[in-house]
């Protein structure tokens, strides 16, 4: 038991419990829906999940610092439209350049959020509620309320969702989930092993203590928002590839799904705890619920209600599990050393 405790941090356990919930959900849907276990279902769900995951990774960075970014949906929409418009005019453009552009645009918008929050000392919820409307407004103005249509786009971007990276049996990992998975892996390591990542946790965990420890919080917070913007920009590219048609409504409401994904995945709204792995699992759960409920052809209203209910259940189960297990997992009393300090290890 002690070994297990040492090797498996509580966070991993929490992710495991989420995997369990996910399996239960999938089994239930499998029973309710004919032909559920097919590659087609898998692809549908995975491309929805890809978008949510990508943005949820960014959101996680911001949530960790005890802030929130509500403008992600608008940033996704704006970037998607801008890229689409740009592609409809220029024929040759490499995917890499397009991705860089997406991250640049998103990053710039995120930087504005970050500067206002960190240096302007305005609460994040106020700033990003404002920029949510402003970025959306900018999109309406820039697009003149016109849409980008699929036929205007070059073929490569339209084919991107079908691109296969890896095949396992009938199922395949396609490009869009691949991008999201890449982001998850990169940020998983950044958060676990870089001092930047650890300081994000520190800031959110106790801003007061961070101040006393000499951590320069504003810089970290700005960076977190910028990265969140950049990932939302990339999300915009994914959005464009997936849907092709971009209206001024693109990405509206995404912020709620993304925040829900992160929170279901165990990222704390009050900062300081959570991982991108959890956020990804949360995104998978949300994506699965959404796509499966659509398949069941439940009416829109009930779909949202069921989804909300599932989120509450998932979070409560997680809370209860964690509360029950925490006392077993951590033994944090002070132990006096035996007389010979190095006798026992």
């Amino acid at each position: 038991m002690r070994r297990v405790r040492r090797l498996v941090p509580l966070q991993r356990l929490r992710e495991l419990s989420l995997v369990l919930i996910l399996i239960i959900v999938i089994v239930i849907f499998g029973n309710q829906i004919d032909n559920y276990y097919t590659p087609r279902t898998f692809n549908r769900i995975s491309s929805t999940v890809a978008l949510i995951t990508l943005v949820a990774v960014g959101q996680t960075l911001v949530l960790l610092t005890r802030n929130v970014d509500l403008s992600v949906g608008s940033m996704v929409g704006f970037t998607a439209y801008y890229l689409g418009r740009h592609l409809s005019k220029t024929e040759d453009m490499s995917p890499m350049v397009l991705a860089a552009m997406a991250m640049g645009i998103g990053g710039a918008m995120g930087l504005i959020n970050g500067l206002l929050v960190a240096y302007g000392r305005i609460p994040a919820i106020v700033v990003t509620l404002g920029t949510m409307a402003i970025y959306r407004g900018a999109l309406v103005r820039y697009s003149d309320s016109k849409s980008v249509a699929t036929r205007e786009l070059p073929p490569w971007i339209k084919d991107l969702p079908q691109e296969t990276l890896y095949k396992f049996g009938e199922y395949e990992l396609r490009a869009l989930p691949g991008i999201a998975l890449g982001a998850v892996i990169i940020f998983f390591f950044i958060l676990l092993y870089s001092s930047f990542g650890r300081r994000l946790y520190a800031i959110g965990s106790s801003p007061e203590a961070a101040h006393l420890a000499g951590i320069h919080a504003p810089r970290m917070v700005t960076l977190a928002f910028t990265l969140c913007g950049a990932l939302s920009g990339l999300g915009g590219m994914v959005y464009l590839a997936r849907f092709g048609t971009i209206t001024v409504e693109a990405g509206r409401g995404l912020e709620l799904q993304v925040v829900a994904a992160a929170v279901v995945g165990g990222v704390s709204i009050t900062g300081g705890s959570g991982t991108v792995l959890g956020a990804m699992l949360g995104a998978i759960l949300i994506g699965t619920l959404e796509q499966s409920l659509i398949r069941m052809q439940i009416n829109e209203f009930w779909k949202d209600a069921v989804m909300g209910l599932c989120i509450i259940v998932a979070v409560s189960v997680d809370r209860i599990l964690i509360n029950q297990l925490t006392p077993w997992w951590s033994r944090t009393e002070l132990q006096r050393m035996p007389e010979e300090p190095h006798a026992e290890v």
Partner: peptide
């Protein structure tokens, strides 16, 4: 004492070394 509740004890001790 102002500790970081979400960081483990080792990290709390070395938080200022991270720079």
């Amino acid at each position: 004492p102002l500790v970081f509740p979400d960081l483990n004890i080792a990290e709390n001790i070395f938080i200022s070394h991270q720079r």
